[in-house]
Design a binder for these strands. Structure first.
Lengths: 216, 216
DNA sequence: TAGATTGTTAATCGATTAACAATC
DNA sequence: TAGATTGTTAATCGATTAACAATC
């Protein structure tokens, strides 16, 4: 039912990054019993500009706000969850079952975002065969066949920086279309494959810089 | 020795996010035996613009490149590690020892970035008292005293979205100056406290959007 | 020297914000 | 109706890129 109007609006990365915060805020207001909400209210609570909020909402949903009233919260939630893909499950494999890899496998929160890690791959003999959180760790040699057979399109890279490009190449050979990369490395991949970098190193640098500044 | 010139250049968030990738690339070239590197080379390998690379390098290090030659790799590495704070250890506490919290505690890679999680706090009776990766899980009631006594300035939030603001308030009361927030929530905190959001939900949305686009 | 590369100043591009008419 | 809020068009702001003189 959200398919009525397919809006080809291009959403900027910045805008997309704001979406989860909108969604969370909307859910809180719904919880509190609110039915409608104005862009102004959202903007104030998230410390954003209200025009920006309106533009963002317009970009991802076909819902129109009513002047003098605002937006229907439930409609916005439905549209946004749909847009963010929280409703349809994405199966993924993970490569690199070191401490970070194991950590991500054991994290149960991804299912809320529609991500399901179905298998992990590693070459460490000690870890292969283990099952964490219902997810089996297998040798990397089995990855290509596995991904192709189950038509997996998402790969998560949690190997050390030095091996990240090799892991990437393996995933590409396995037919993966999108990569979630936790290694602080630029990966070379074809244009049509999405590489989404999770830049924890940068986050930590931000914290470090702040502390340095405070204690100067 | 890097203190000769304190450059008050304001580095944009975007620039800071590129730093870890520069650093990794520099280390790889050093490993390969290179002594100098040009901005052009860096730019090509990371798919960036070379002027941008030069500006970024100038912003975080006092090193000048030599025309016709480039930059001394080792000098750049030293300056960048210094700038990113990888050399000095930051002690941190974590609040919320659920699956994500435990995952982060058990991850051994943060020490490379200078982060040391010294304690975790949770109210779940079942988990308090546990020790993971040398890190003890304690009741939240002990947090304020603990942080003040050990002068901890960094707090990591890994509680569910609904409890994130309460966790934030707890951390603020404990004298924390910088917060690394894994909950997809905007936190209200004083201006002088840094809130660094780790936006995994947004990353996943990016992947989801890509897949939707491919299979359309 | 000639060519490559640097660092800086100016132009471009895109995101954010301000201004304002339309509407409930 | 008057006031609040919407959506859009124009202005502003900041980051990226292009142009170019300086230098090894």
């Amino acid at each position: 039912m959200n398919q009525q109007k397919r809006n080809p609006v291009i959403v900027s990365v910045q805008a997309l990054q704001r979406m989860p915060y909108y969604l969370q805020l909307l859910k809180e207001h719904k919880q509190a019993g609110d039915i409608v909400i104005s862009a102004k209210t959202i903007a104030t609570e998230l410390r954003l500009n209200d025009v920006q909020v309106r533009k963002d909402l317009a970009a991802v949903s076909s819902i129109k706000g009513k002047p003098n009233t605002g937006f229907e919260i439930q409609d916005l939630i439905d549209n946004m969850e749909d847009y963010l893909g929280y409703n349809n499950v994405m199966d993924a494999v993970l490569i690199g079952a070191g401490s970070l890899g194991k950590a991500l496998i054991s994290y149960k929160g991804f299912e809320n975002y529609g991500l399901n890690i179905v298998a992990a791959f590693d070459n460490e003999v000690g870890t292969t065969g283990d099952v964490i959180n219902g997810c089996r760790i297998r040798p990397v040699s089995e990855m290509e066949e596995f991904c192709k057979r189950l038509r997996i399109h998402i790969g998560i890279i949690t190997v050390p920086a030095q091996s990240a490009q090799a892991a990437c190449d393996n995933l590409l050979a396995s037919g993966i279309l999108a990569i979630w990369n936790f290694a602080p490395v630029h990966l070379n991949a074809p244009e049509n494959v999405l590489v989404q970098n999770e830049n924890m190193a940068a986050s930590l640098a931000m914290l470090s810089r702040k502390l340095k500044e405070m204690t100067r």
